[in-house]
């Protein structure tokens, strides 16, 4: 139990946790406004990674309709990331228009949105596979220039290391959190969003066009999802059309742990679960997958509104 080990585990936890946090931000945003879990978020996240790949690298593999196709123009990484994120934002809007708005208008059981968003996820994931196959795509290693692969330093004669990409992910999650916080707290659009979240009927009486703001929420959620998808794709490779969907379930644990609908809670929840996994004794690695859900179950029993959740109300 030496200090170097503690520090290394702390860094590991933050590193894993920031992956979860980055994923969960866009996920929790929709919940905070609509009180609905958007199962298509994982698919939009995946789409973001593929879109950025198409824009930045533009060469496809040997499977799918686009086999052997090379895009006529490619962008440098950062513009590609931004364009890819905006396109994912548009995809998020399409999800709202296809899967959520029609249900609201018809007064359907709110639970049905779980199913319809799952349907959209099925479409997106299989469309990606239809077009570019299930193979693994990756971004060039030098995408961030010539940064070293990892930062390694000595504590008491023992090495402690953290991968550069993890520092970037951690930073990105904080920047995204800060940006979102600024937008919601300080801008007029953000205030209208909060009003919509508080009470949609009152908001519409106040002259806020609720549907437009919901659409805006989905755009931002998709945008964040696209950014996150690309960053995680850079870190771990774009491992097939299902790679984002597999974060969905743990992402659910993350946003509930932090407090459903709480935006800083999503980051906190991610970090807590990451730390929980990192501090699990190494001879218990086979139980790592259960950590998030044991924490989730425990917090629900003790404090159902989550770590940072304020009000507890009946939404689905």
């Amino acid at each position: 139990m030496d200090f170097a080990w503690l520090l290394q585990s702390l860094l590991n936890g933050l590193s894993i946790g920031s992956v979860y946090a980055v994923f969960a931000l866009g996920y929790t945003l929709v919940f905070s406004i609509l009180g609905i879990i958007n199962f298509a978020h994982g698919a939009v996240f995946t789409l973001g990674a593929y879109l950025t790949y198409a824009l930045a690298v533009g060469r496809f593999g040997i499977n799918g309709l686009l086999a052997d196709v090379t895009m006529p123009v490619t962008l440098p990484f950062v513009p590609a990331l931004l364009v890819g994120a905006v396109l994912s934002g548009l995809a998020g809007m399409a999800v709202e228009r296809l899967a959520f708005k029609p249900l609201r208008q018809r007064g359907a059981d709110p639970l049905l949105a779980l199913v319809s968003s799952l349907g959209v996820a099925l479409i997106v994931v299989n469309l990606i596979q239809y077009l570019v196959g299930a193979e693994i795509y990756s971004f060039p290693a030098d995408i961030f220039g010539d940064l070293p692969m990892a930062v390694i330093f000595q504590i008491g004669g023992k090495p402690v290391a953290v991968r550069t990409i993890q520092i970037i992910l951690f930073g990105a999650s904080l920047v995204m959190l800060a940006g979102l916080g600024w937008f919601i707290g300080r801008t007029r659009g953000g205030k209208a969003l909060r009003a919509t979240a508080e009470n949609a009927d009152t908001a519409s009486l106040l002259g806020i066009s609720v549907n437009r703001f919901i659409l805006g929420t989905f755009f931002i959620s998709g945008l964040l999802g696209g950014l996150a998808g690309t960053l995680i794709g850079v870190s771990f490779g774009v491992a097939g059309p299902y790679f984002g969907v597999s974060y969905g379930l743990k992402g659910l644990a993350v946003i509930v742990l932090g407090g459903l609908g709480s935006i800083p809670g999503a980051v906190l929840g991610g970090l807590v679960i990451g730390l929980g996994e990192a501090f699990l004794p190494s001879d218990m690695s086979s139980y790592k997958e259960a950590v998030a859900f044991v924490l989730l179950f425990a917090i629900l029993l003790v404090r159902p509104q989550g770590l940072l959740g304020g009000r507890l109300e009946q939404k689905v």
Binding site: S15, I16, I232, E277, L280, S282, S285
Partner: peptide, 13 residues
């Protein structure tokens, strides 16, 4: 899994 830092730490340790 995508992040293996805990496993790697165990190997290095």
């Amino acid at each position: 899994d995508t992040d293996f830092t805990t496993q790697v730490t165990a190997v290095l340790g």
